[in-house]
């Protein structure tokens, strides 16, 4: 059987969207408006919404990629990038076998998890002090 004859099985919903793609994009629009108006940040959990196969991808495709991207090495990888709509970030957490464990759209200046965390800074300072203390020079 040549590839053209391979039957298409029901793992796609044709080209029809379910009713959730547009509303999510509009929700992001409203969130962005609120962020501009009074600095209110928002997080949308993409895994809490029923989406047909390919729809999550289509949302992500619509949002595109912007200027900033970061890769975190925390309990498996995490990928964070700003979409082409400034202020809208996509945060994807992977586990150590590279499956997605959670995925969020954040509307903010910068997702909190990117910032250096106070607890870690304390830990870092201690480590540095220890390091310098043992340094004989």
């Amino acid at each position: 059987m040549n590839p053209a004859e391979t039957p298409q099985f029901n793992i796609h919903a044709g080209n029809e969207f379910t009713w959730n793609v547009k509303p999510i994009l509009h929700e992001i629009r409203h969130a962005l408006q609120r962020f501009l108006d009074n600095g209110e940040t928002s997080i949308i959990d993409l895994r809490s919404i029923p989406l047909a196969p390919g729809e999550e991808e289509s949302i992500i495709e619509t949002l595109g990629r912007g200027e900033v991207q970061a890769r975190l090495d925390v309990l498996g990888a995490s990928e964070i990038y700003e979409t082409k709509y400034t202020g809208v970030w996509l945060v994807t957490h992977y586990n150590d076998s590279d499956s997605i464990v959670s995925r969020f759209i954040e509307v903010t200046e910068m997702p909190d998890v990117l910032k250096s965390q106070r607890e870690d800074v304390v830990h870092a300072l201690n480590a540095l002090v220890t390091e310098l203390g043992t340094d004989k020079t």
């Binding site: 959990d45 975190l72 309990l75 464990v101 106070r118 870690d120």
Partner: peptide, 21 residues
């Protein structure tokens, strides 16, 4: 386990518990 890891853990836990972010 770093604080960032912990934050990731909490975000995933929230998603898992079906709680709002």
């Amino acid at each position: 386990v770093s604080r960032r890891s912990f934050m990731k853990f909490c975000a995933t836990t929230a998603s898992m518990m079906a709680l709002p972010p």
